[in-house]
Amino acid sequence: MTFVDLTFFVCAAIAIYAGWRVFRTDSMVRASFFLLISFIAVGIIMLLLAAVYLGVALFFMMAVEMMVMALFMMMFMMNPAGLNPMNMVHQEKVAMGIGIAAFVALSGVAVFGDFPSRPVPDGLDPVVSLGKELLGNSMLVFESAGVTLLATMIGVVAMTSHRGRFGEANEGSVPPGLEPGGDPAGKPQENDQKQQGHHHHH
C-alpha cells in the first residue's frame, strides 16, 4: 500500500464518518462544521486525483459556505447559540431509504462499471488546462452562469435592503396568515391555551 492509497483510505473514512455525524449531532453549528470536515476530506482526495485547483477551491468554497450557513441558521433558527441539544432530523425514514438507495446505486456504478484506463499524459498541467477550458470553449456557459448568479445576488440584496426606493422596506408589513385571509402569524397569543402545540422541535 503506497502513501497515496493510505491517504485515500484515511480521507474516505473521515469523509464518511463526518458525513454520518452531520445527522447524529444535535447542534446546527456542529452539523455545518462536520459537513465542512467531510468536504475537506473529499478535497484532499481530489488533490490525490491531481485535480489540484478543484481540490483547493473546494476548501475555500466550503469553508465560506459552511460558515455562512452556520451563522444564518443561528440567526434565523431556534437554538441560536447552537449549544443546546435539539432534534436535527425530520422525515428520517424516507431520507434514509433514499440515501441507502442512492448509495447502493452509485457504489454499483463504481464497482461494476467499466471505466476506461487512460493515464494522465506526462506534462499535463491541470490548472492551465482547466483555465483554458473555462475561458475557451465553455466560456459562454460559465460566463452566463456567473453573470446570472451575480445579477441574482445584487437583486436579492436590493430587495432585502432596509432602505427601499419608496421608504422603509418594512413599513406597514405584517407576516402572512397561517391560513388564507387569517390573522398574521407569529403574533403573541393572549390566550395561554392556544399556545399548546407550539413546543415542537425542529
Binding site: 462544521f33 465542512l36 483547493v56 477551491a57 476548501f59 475555500f60 469553508a63 465560506v64 459552511m66 460558515m67
Partner: peptide, 9 residues
C-alpha cells in the same frame, strides 16, 4: 486564499 476562510472558521 483557502486558509483565510478556514481561519475564519
Amino acid at each position: 486564499g483557502a486558509l483565510e476562510p478556514l481561519a475564519t472558521v
